[in-house]
Simulated assay, not measured.
Amino acid sequence: MPITLPRDLPAYRVLSDEGVMVMGQEAAFRQDIRPLRIGLLNLMPMKIATETQFARLIGATPLQIELTLIRMSEHRSRHTAPEHMEAFYHTWEEVREQRFDGFLITGSPIEHLPFEEVTYWDELRRIMDWTQTHVHSSFGVCWGGMAMAWHFHGVEKHMLDRKAFGCFRVTNEAPASPYLRGFSDECVIPVSRWTEMRRDAIEAAGMDVLLDSPETGPCLIEDRAHRAIHIFNHFEYDSDTLKREYDRDIAAGTPINVPGHYYPGDDPTRPPQNRWRSHAHLLYGNWINEIYQTTPFDDALIGTHRQTLGEAPERV
């Protein structure tokens, strides 16, 4: 089954050209099935690139996905055309009465700020609390995952001496986890951040580390008490995303190291190779599958139950 997107959303054409099955909203309405409703709270400045990256991954499963693009009600994007935001995005206030099978909160390039100094922190706190009553499964990405771990558990983020930047090996710490079904013992993932959360604090808060790295610390964690997983790195990145970040900083004169283990021979004149694509599809496909297996068919029941640590997922 395809992912349902507006036909004039840029991601529709990009993904169609890549061979991803996409469906216009009119055709989706004619199918007599309940699609999984996934909300994407997009906090990244380059909205179009980010929405395309996530749509590519969640649209690669056999299930029909209805993707809703969401923005903060109290924040205006400076890097994406107002016409695009008006045409394709809903504010959280506009969708807060709705229920979602899955909900993604992206990263944001504001990790140097204490959480409470982020201009939209109060609204984001309300959204994170709202996920506990209106969302079946949440997925926090990079800063979004750190924000959820801080909000729900008080896990602190720590500034790094230098930016973790490149492609780093992570080890599979929980091969029996349904989210890691099909994963290798090790895999590679892009990393681009100035902060980290530490394993001892994560585990002390009752969360489980699923993927970990001796170089860059915890990568993927599960928060069973809040029906959530968080990833601090970037499986969703395109092959050239780190290159574009590196080239941008070099052009601006910003001190930046060559992204490690990314270019062949660490030579930035050579085209980078994508070594994480298959595991990216595995992780997001496994997340979608877990949602499908456990979410109530009656979407009015979403968020009306709470799973606790150690409790087996509800099968309905």
Rank of each mutant, 00 (worst) to 15 (best):
R7S: 08
L9G: 02
A11P: 03
L15D: 08
S16K: 11
E18G: 01
G19V: 04
M23V: 08
Q31V: 15
Q31F: 14
I33M: 11
I38W: 04
G39T: 06
A49F: 01
L57P: 03
M72F: 02
S73W: 01
E83W: 12
F88Q: 08
Y89V: 12
W92N: 05
R96C: 15
R99K: 12
F100V: 02
D101R: 04
L104A: 04
I105K: 05
I110W: 02
I110N: 06
T119S: 10
M128G: 04
D129Y: 10
D129C: 04
S138W: 11
G140I: 01
G145C: 01
M146K: 13
W150V: 02
F168S: 03
V170M: 14
A176D: 15
Y179G: 00
G182I: 12
G182L: 09
F183V: 04
F183H: 14
I189K: 05
S192P: 10
R193K: 11
W194H: 14
T195K: 01
D200I: 08
I202N: 01
I202Y: 09
G206D: 01
L220N: 02
E222Y: 03
D223E: 06
A225I: 05
H226D: 05
I229L: 15
I229F: 15
D240R: 03
D240Y: 02
L242P: 15
K243L: 06
D249W: 00
A252V: 00
G253W: 03
Y262E: 07
P264I: 02
P268R: 14
T269A: 13
N274Y: 02
W276N: 07
R277C: 00
A280Q: 03
L282K: 15
Y284P: 05
N289Y: 13
E290A: 14
E311W: 02
E311G: 07
E314L: 11
